[in-house]
Design a binder for these strands. Structure first.
Lengths: 229, 229
DNA sequence: AAAAAACCGTTGCCGTGGCAACAAAGGATC
DNA sequence: GATCCTTTGTTGCCACGGCAACGGTTTTTT
């Protein structure tokens, strides 16, 4: 378990907790570590979990399964990713299916143990609770950001808004997005060909340069103007 | 404070807590009660709160203020409504402005007191924490539902989906929605005239009956079919 | 290395829905 | 009761973007 200390301290769930606190917490919470092979499901849509998972190695994807069977990508996570938190340990059923995209190791924490202050009265537990609330509200704001994007009135505004947020996230005006065209179109809720068309136009107008999934923003001020209308 | 017991027990934040537990909790948490007059702001966008508010009388609305100054209705709450919870007591700033739509009384709970198990070790505190997580994840799912709605490909699907969810919520096929046409159009992210047009068509086709903000669903099975495409 | 599959750009066609403008019907205020 | 303002329905116009189809390129499979 020691081996995960450095990683755990960088997760949102255990941020701001020192080594001693983390030690005591881990011995109290006694998470179980499980390994999954590529393609295996960690959580099925419709299940209720009662556990919070923390990815310590590998990567996972969360899909929403539409009634017609098509998979819609909701989220991707690498080491440090936290899932199952939004279910609140209640009997709520998961809206998503979580699948390993490569061999993955996950620590599972029982939800009721996260909520109950143990008899050892670990001082780090308060921080943990605050972090738990924080991980959930973070996801709330990610979703809120998505709503903002979907509310934009035309495709160019959506594209501009998305590109600017990616530039901000990566901290540079030249970046690669981890999506195929089709996935990006799905995220922006538009047709793939329409997205290609719009990107071509924007390139022709000198707003951006793009090849495959790499982008270079040439005129951020105009993009910012476009993204809010 | 006694006078609020019955109300508080029906809120999501204090659900499942008995009178004795509620008594001890309230004396520990020592919420402050504040009154606001109609139109007064309880929380400004951009502020960070550090408090959770529970409406005990009156009603409030949460607005998002667009860069061009227009107000977008995000949420409405009556007695029992909880707000400020999603900010997680952290330094996150509120994305919305909360305004009293009529004279309102609110109990404010300090966030850090909610998270810290007090030295009295109230047994109800664990339930409270679980409830807090639950109120936040509830809001997550409300937003998630909104995303589902916005992802639908055409207006008829959005309208059908919305009407069905309202019917489910009210438990009857004849109901009134608390929105003007313009507000409903805003929620569905479409033009007001387009919404009126679509409702007219649906009425002409015998799917619904509608007058102003009252609706009657005539063919729920067809509506259900429309709402998922 | 060949074959298959996935991915991407492009283009013609056309329908949904945005926009603007107007009329009618309450509701509120005086 | 007259006036003003808000809310709603309606309709013509047309642009944005969905759809389908095709070809070229890259990647994966065997």
């Amino acid at each position: 378990m020691q081996e995960y200390h450095a990683l755990l301290k960088r997760t949102t769930l255990f941020a701001g907790i020192d080594d001693a606190g983390l030690d005591r917490l881990l011995s109290c919470l006694a998470p179980s570590c499980r390994n999954f092979s590529k393609g295996e499901a960690l959580l099925h849509a419709g299940q209720s979990a009662g556990q919070v998972g923390v990815v310590v190695a590998g990567a996972i994807e969360a899909y929403r399964i539409a009634p017609d069977g098509t998979r819609i990508l909701v989220s991707r996570m690498g080491p440090g990713g936290v899932f199952g938190d939004v279910l609140g340990g209640s009997s709520l059923t998961s809206p998503v299916t979580v699948v390993a995209t490569e061999p993955v190791s996950v620590l599972f924490f029982a939800y009721h143990q996260l909520l109950v202050q143990c008899r050892n009265n670990c001082p780090a537990h308060t921080q943990l609770l605050q972090n738990l609330v924080r991980t959930i509200s973070d996801k709330y704001f990610v979703l809120s950001r998505r709503v903002d994007l979907l509310l934009l009135k035309n495709l160019r505004a959506k594209v501009s808004s998305f590109l600017l947020s990616e530039a901000k996230r990566t901290g540079t005006a030249t970046f690669t997005v981890p999506f195929t065209r089709a996935q990006l179109a799905e995220y922006l809720n538009c047709d793939r060909s329409a997205l290609s068309r719009e990107l071509s136009r924007m390139q022709a107008e000198g707003l951006i340069e793009t090849y495959k999934s790499s982008f270079k923003l040439l005129d951020s001020t105009t993009l910012a103007h476009l993204s809010s209308q």
